[in-house]
Design a protein around this nucleic acid. Structure first.
Lengths: 166, 166
DNA sequence: TCTGGCGTTCAATACAGATTGAACGTTCCG
DNA sequence: CGGAACGTTCAATCTGTATTGAACGCCAGA
């Protein structure tokens, strides 16, 4: 493997780690981004020098988080993984989910915290106002990106949709 | 301390942890949000049952990350901490910073990766396009929130600006 | 019904990161 | 000059989490 590829893969690992995700998951994403075809589990394991078990765990994590997709090819019993085709929209959805979760904490606090903590409650309400604003903005961002992607995919077809995976 | 307060503080800790930050830092943020006045380090340590050293570390982390502010009062040698007054804008700036960092990785990869990885390079370019779009959107979000905050702070003064901290 | 290849699971292990508690430097006051 | 009250630092320790490697179940084909 090229030194440049390893560098990119390693940086993806660190990027994921700084977001609180396993470094190996980030490395796998880096590998999947670079490689042209979907990769089977054992190839990922071999190329990254990571045990099969860890690859299995991290690939399933990537799949459940919407980062990667599991695909199969007829005549081959193995599981292949590739980058999720709608990765960008997925990450926007995930961001919305995180904001919603935080809003849940704040709203619950406003309901349950005693009234004598009036300053604290007002502060929490302000933080909530911002995150409600943020949630609306995220919806707008999502819609705009979806519209742009739509327009582009009419002129030249997207990368993943032309692959024959079953 | 009320059970409801502890619940909120603990949830803030978990929220921070899911973002890859120390749980104690989140707990401190929860405490600072609830309490009316800025808190000295030893009060934080006592109320959270966390050692002074850990509080010192985490408070400085919060300060350097723009979450909290260190303030002092004349006649008192202690350091006090409170929630940063421009917390929302700060978090938007931090988000922009993270996107920029990731864009740096992607652009570097495009420069250094060999040309024969054309599919991978194209995929990386697509991810980069999305994040450049995201960066522009974030600027818009920031501007709109700043405008809203401005309009509001004209009618009734903000919380922190009326405190006499030196 | 076997055999081999595949993904998953799980207990043991390794490791990174947070916490502790004591030691230290500083500053302020008696 | 002490001495007390701070915040900081740092090595030792603890703890949660990721990784490993072997065992397992499953399925397809011989």
């Amino acid at each position: 493997m090229h030194e440049q590829s390893e560098r990119f893969i390693e940086r993806m690992g660190l990027q994921f780690e700084s977001d609180g995700l396993p470094r190996t998951a980030g490395r796998i994403m880096g590998l999947l981004l670079i490689r042209e075809d979907p990769l089977p589990l054992d190839a990922i394991s071999r190329e990254l020098g990571v045990s099969k078990g860890s690859c299995s765990m991290n690939c399933r994590l990537l799949e459940s988080g919407g980062w990667a997709e599991r695909v199969s090819f007829r005549g081959d019993r193995r599981d292949f993984y590739r980058v999720a085709p709608d990765l960008s929209l997925r990450s926007l959805d995930a961001a919305q989910g995180r904001v919603k979760a935080f809003l849940g904490i704040l709203d619950d606090a406003l309901e349950t915290l005693p009234p004598d903590l009036d300053v604290g409650r007002r502060r929490i309400r302000e933080v909530g106002d911002f995150h409600r604003f943020l949630l609306g903005e995220l919806r707008g961002v999502r819609a705009r990106w979806a519209a742009m992607e739509d327009r582009v995919s009419h002129s030249h077809d997207s990368l993943n949709t032309e692959m024959e995976a079953q």
